[in-house]
Design a protein around this nucleic acid. Structure first.
Length: 484
RNA sequence: GAUUCGCUAGCUCAGUCGGUAGAGCACCUGACUUUUAAUCAGGGUGUCCCGGGUUCAAAUCCCGGGCGGAUCACCA
């Protein structure tokens, strides 16, 4: 680093500003490959190109040298020659380091070895790099540096850049899918006085002027349904939500969800939307709905549907919905070694059995439906059996990727459900819903029959980029603060 | 939060039984006008994560702490 500072001063002494300004770029590396790819060995283009990027390698040969310049589209070889540049400019080239950012112009030719190359007629130093980059051969592997200094990761590891470009493509394909079907994209507050719409502990912050605590949203659900009440009929929001929970491969404190609400539809319509979004994204990236995740082949097309109770029954032989009393359900759970808490009803115990015995095995895509009402405080009850709801969750590789249901639009029932949640909260469930009286009031004005859906965007991106950790699909994952 | 593994040069890593801190790449000096992990000759650039302890002597052994990974717990 000391030496690089000396080189920086040497540029200044030569009258060259080491941190340059605007540079007009006519081509990127990929453009050159496309436009001049047909050049024969030792043949040269008639026109000059202007390119800019970061020097990734220098191979010196005395009075001529090769380098590699990387830009957003890839990289291209560049050739510096004393005869072409002259003594002064070539001596400036000698002061360049790997990592420096330059702009240059020159004609394109193909070397004896067949490498498409730009012969540098002249170059401008656009930014002197004062720190050495990681070594090129082994690259940057230290995951801590990769996450904390993502810029280095992006410079050194092209596949990382590729993952994040795919992330953008996936989100674009989602927008297109929804926009094409007349859903409108909206933005709702992140700061709110009530954190509702999901079961999770929120982050708390404080507004000085209002002198009041505010919560960071844990879901977008309730506000989006207010908008359905308001008459939008089809809305969605792609946005960051925040949950004050532990972190691991699948959880980051802030993550991105897309929630979608469709008036006059029900959970079956939203199952179709879920499948449609996932397949559209996979097709955009791979051209097929058949993907490989962590060595397992997965086809996102036409996943089967199975009720939670049947899933548990198939696996354990126990039919929890045949129970008439909690005691019977507890006995069943005991027989198959499933733990439950005192406050659980039949539905809670069924859900515990599902999570314990079934969830991890749901590798191939499947829609699990008809979750117990007890654990679904915002979902509409099934018309034939009030103990369960018209709800679904989409599982792939043992992970919940999406969750949706026919929305509860009966304000009286919703109020009862909130009151049940308050009891659960008092019984020690920190993540039970809080009462949202304005939401009840909105329902009292009339929410049309509506289907709703939430997809974990990061988890979908993980699946489609074969990323083992959620941190691999977040540019700047949450990290512990380093001690001073 | 628990268990476990890791932290040594810019990067990737080695370091034996506790005895002068190592390699490759990068970097520096020199040679080289079509190389591509360029090559050849020479050069080691360090808070061994931090703080204690044991010892004549600690990267190494012990204790505490930090950060990271994995697994579990938690998290619909």
């Amino acid at each position: 680093m000391k030496i690089r500072r000396e080189k920086l001063n040497a540029f200044i002494e030569k009258g060259v500003q080491p941190f340059g300004h605007r540079f007009e770029v006519t081509h990127h590396a990929a453009d050159i490959r496309e436009e001049f790819g047909s050049l024969e060995v030792e043949q040269e283009s008639s026109d000059e190109v202007k390119i800019a990027g970061r020097i990734m390698a220098i191979r010196g040969h005395g009075k001529a040298s090769f380098g590699v310049l990387a830009d957003r589209s890839g990289s291209i070889q560049i050739y510096f020659k004393l005869d072409v540049l002259g003594e002064e400019k070539y001596s400036q080239f000698k002061l360049l380091d790997i990592g420096d950012i330059i702009g240059l112009r020159g004609k394109v030719f193909r070397t004896k070895r067949g490498e498409l190359t730009v012969r540098v007629e002249n170059f401008d130093l656009l930014s002197k790099s004062l720190r050495p980059l990681p070594e090129k051969f082994h690259g940057l592997k230290d995951v801590e540096i990769r996450y904390r200094q993502r810029y280095l990761d992006l410079i050194m590891n092209p596949e990382v850049r590729d993952t994040f470009l795919k992330r953008t493509e996936i989100i674009k394909s989602m927008r297109k899918y929804l926009d094409d079907r007349n859903f409108i994209e909206v933005e709702t507050p992140i700061l709110s006085t009530i954190a509702g719409g999901a079961a999770a502990r929120p982050f708390v912050t404080h507004h000085n002027t209002l002198d009041t605590d505010l919560y960071l949203r844990i879901a977008t659900e309730l506000n989006l349904k207010r908008l359905i009440v308001g008459g939008f009929e089809r809305v969605y929001e792609i946005g960051r939500i925040f949950r004050n929970e532990g972190m691991d491969n699948r959880h980051n404190p802030e993550f991105t969800s897309v929630e979608i609400y469709q008036a006059y539809g029900d959970y079956n319509d939203l199952i179709d939307v879920t499948e449609g979004i996932c397949c559209a994204a996979a097709e955009k990236i791979f051209g097929t709905t058949k993907i490989t995740y962590q060595g397992v082949e997965i086809d996102l097309k036409n996943p089967p549907r199975l009720s939670m109770n049947d899933a548990v029954k198939n696996k354990t032989g126990k039919d929890f919905l045949s129970c008439q009393t909690v005691e019977e359900a507890r006995k069943m759970a005991d027989e198959i070694g499933v733990a439950y808490e005192e406050r659980f009803g039949i539905g809670g115990i069924l859900n515990a059995a599902f999570e314990e015995k079934v969830e991890d095995d749901l590798i191939q895509p499947i829609f699990i439906t008809h979750h117990p009402t007890e654990i679904s405080p915002l979902a509409k009850k099934n018309p034939d059996d009030p103990r369960i709801t018209d709800r679904f969750e989409f599982f792939v590789y043992g992970r919940e990727l999406a969750n949706g249901f026919t929305e509860l639009n009966d304000p009286i029932d919703q109020k009862n459900r909130f009151e049940e949640q308050l009891k659960a909260r008092e019984a020690g469930d920190e993540e039970a819903h809080v009462m949202d009286t304005d939401f009840i009031r909105a329902l009292e004005y009339g929410l049309p029959p509506t289907g709703g859906l939430g997809i974990g965007v990061d988890r979908l991106v993980m699946l489609l980029t074969d990323a083992p950790s959620i941190r691999d699909v977040l540019l700047f994952p949450t990290m512990k603060v380093l001690a001073e």
